[in-house]
Design a protein around this nucleic acid. Sequence first.
DNA 1: AAGACTTCCGGTAACGTTCCCGGCGTTGAG
DNA 2: CTCAACGCCGGGAACGTTACCGGAAGTCTT
Lengths: 346, 346
Amino acid sequence: MRRLERRPTIIDVARLAGVSKSTVARALSDGAEINPKTREAVLAAARTAGYERNHLAVGMRSGRSGMIGLVIPDIANPFWAEVARGAQDRAEEHGISLLVFSSNWDHDREARHLAALRQARVDGAIINPVADSFDDLDRFGLPFVLIGSSAERFPETSSVGSDIAQAVRLGLDNLVSRGHDMPYLLLGTKARIARARFLRAVYDHCIARDVDPAVLPTEDGDYTVEGGRAAMSRILARHPGGHISIFAANDLMALGAMLTAREQGLNCPDDVSILGFDGVPAGEFSWPGLTTIEKPARAIGRRAFDSLSEEIAGRADHSRIYLPCRLLERGSLADRAPVQRRREVA
Amino acid sequence: MRRLERRPTIIDVARLAGVSKSTVARALSDGAEINPKTREAVLAAARTAGYERNHLAVGMRSGRSGMIGLVIPDIANPFWAEVARGAQDRAEEHGISLLVFSSNWDHDREARHLAALRQARVDGAIINPVADSFDDLDRFGLPFVLIGSSAERFPETSSVGSDIAQAVRLGLDNLVSRGHDMPYLLLGTKARIARARFLRAVYDHCIARDVDPAVLPTEDGDYTVEGGRAAMSRILARHPGGHISIFAANDLMALGAMLTAREQGLNCPDDVSILGFDGVPAGEFSWPGLTTIEKPARAIGRRAFDSLSEEIAGRADHSRIYLPCRLLERGSLADRAPVQRRREVA
DNA sequence: AAGACTTCCGGTAACGTTCCCGGCGTTGAG
DNA sequence: CTCAACGCCGGGAACGTTACCGGAAGTCTT
């Protein structure tokens, strides 16, 4: 590896090609009026000099840094990693670089990251905000697009997320059609907006189907495997023999519930049927495979980038995009006779 | 969201505080000689003006952009996502921003990403290079640190990776102590350096233990679940009743092998014992849980950042760091009497 | 053939910051 | 009382690029 002493500039190229630096700049930018022959000569000189554009200087002069920020809770979380990948793929197509930060669901870290993005003079940002902390966003001062469920609280901005209502309809209808008409709802952390959205979608669908939502039993979790295990223990304490079904608000809790059920000697799906929500890769390898509702994570990342491009260009109004989820049937849901199920609950 | 018309500069702050821009610059940089009282006044003026340093300008003038690049095969892959998280955590502590790219094991994409990093004037990069494509790296012209197994081919640079030799020793000794003295080696993609490193570690350990390495049966895979399934099918065609053990070169193949074994009516671990390598989260949820050798992914990311810092500072020589792996016992390995096992193989 | 118009190029001024140098006022020593 | 020393600050140049303006050719029209 040899480290260059001084990287060649536009002026070096100009000297080499025997033209002025303005001409080099014109040759390098594609929309300018320049003689094709001199352009070729300049490009050749740039190649032999090993010239590479300094994006810092470009950004300073033009006000466009060619970078965007991505602030997500945790890049090590498979869902957010997929989102990042989607955004990255699109960014690469447009020659944009991605600055990635993990907020870790921490308010202060998020604020610091937003400041760092402003100081880096990114052209915009894709953000999954930490719940109820929108003051920083309000002051962000740059174009941005929200992803995830918290977008609801921020009607003034573009957002991309999954269609929770459609997903819940899909899940509940599938449960009911298999005879699970009174599934336990395994809910997430109480303060989170995602929890409220999930619950509301369930209620709305119940009412649309003429069912009293209040009859559905619920249990609290915290979106983690351990939370799922603990909730399952509490449920099984009330139903020692099983014969229950679970609709978990995310896959990790569903997998935790599955582990606990097995440890207590119960069979999934026969004794305990479980439906997850997310579509994490681990659900493919559990036994039985976790039937779940898959969120289109990568597509969310892609669309978020597209929305941000629109936002940066100033075209169009703010848009709210909800991408549909799909059911992944794998084997954690048993078929039950609806009548039999109803009798056992009563 | 209000978008500011013009962001305040150092000059605006200077006007507000009634000093020159040089004084503001001094107040903002911590090592300079300045009267504490005027510094306070300047900082107050900066606060009221809502001033934020323009890192593009700083980078241009000082030659330090405050950004580093991370080029990994796939940010959506759980192992690399963990590495990214480790690097990110450390970067955040140092006030450095991370530019993340996925090479997708593609030579051209990698080359484009390296060019993008140079143009962004990053201070350095952490790279997992695509196999046998080091020409681009040679020309990279910036400090960088390699991560992963391909670092071996590049003796002139710093690198951070897991200690494959130690990991293989751990795995083989554990297999042997449980009576699996002739495990199938489920290998990865042929061209990859990782495959050769794994094999060499196995051979070295066999020779150290006075075993002829040639007796160990091998089967080819490609580091994917499907590859693991296919390899397992071929193995089971030769051993219909099972009674074999597998040492897979990564977890995905191990999980694929486990699925196929179960689909063919075999029990894991009694009929087929499986040892994985990586420590992906999915291994926790399989049934049985996948016993595996966990690579310290997050620590690798952290150490890679530290090494890069050294490299950028120009301190010290290039370092090669191999972090130890640890065995995660979960249940995919049965205990067998060694004698019985030997008879069956013969 | 002379003017108007087009094509193409060079010079210069920014963008926001840091660094260096020189200058001012104050302090201390001789 | 004078002069050097020191602490502190302002002015200017530079980093590499793009945008604007004006000018030198060449082309076309009448």
